[in-house]
Amino acid sequence: MWSPTLLTGVALGGMLGALARYALGAALAPLVLKSGFPWVTLLINVSGSFALGLLSALALRGTVSPEARAALGVGFLGAYTTFSTFSVDLDGMLLRGDTLRAGAYLLGNVGLGLLAALAGRVVGR
């Protein structure tokens, strides 16, 4: 279960997921600054939910090896998505009294994330 291949895959996947998240955040930073809304975190969490739903469906079909699932799911997507940033962003909106945006952000991350995971699973079938 804890083979060197599996651990290396998770480590490399995590590195690439973190780099992808950083690059997307840097590329979209002007949008966030202009709008004051954490679009990057929302986009990352929804796209990551879709990708993990797809990966899970493919794994259930047996088309993805356990090593690839660990590298992509735990490694890449674990580093790419970010529940902690979502939580801090939401807390900041609530502290500023921006309840309408906070509600939209909460529903966007949870609702769209769930829909994206379901869509990924359907596509994976």
Rank of each mutant, 00 (worst) to 15 (best):
A70R: 01
V46D: 05
V40W: 04
V40Y: 01
V40G: 01
L95S: 13
G48E: 12
L95A: 15
Y105P: 07
A57G: 15
A104F: 14
G62Q: 02
A59K: 11
F83M: 12
A57L: 06
V88R: 10
G97R: 01
V74D: 12
T99R: 08
G36K: 09
L54I: 13
L107V: 13
L90P: 09
G108D: 07
L52R: 10
V74R: 04
L106P: 08
W39N: 06
L54F: 15
S84G: 08
G62F: 04
G48S: 10
F76M: 10
W39G: 05
S84K: 01
D89K: 05
G73T: 11
F76Q: 04
L60V: 14
R101S: 08
S56H: 14
F86H: 06
T82Q: 03
S65F: 02
G78W: 01
G53I: 11
V110D: 01
A102C: 08
S47W: 14
A70N: 13
G73A: 11
Y80F: 13
V88I: 15
V110S: 00
A79S: 15
T85I: 00
P38R: 13
S49L: 14
D91T: 14
Y80E: 06
L94A: 15
S65Q: 07
V40E: 08
G92S: 13
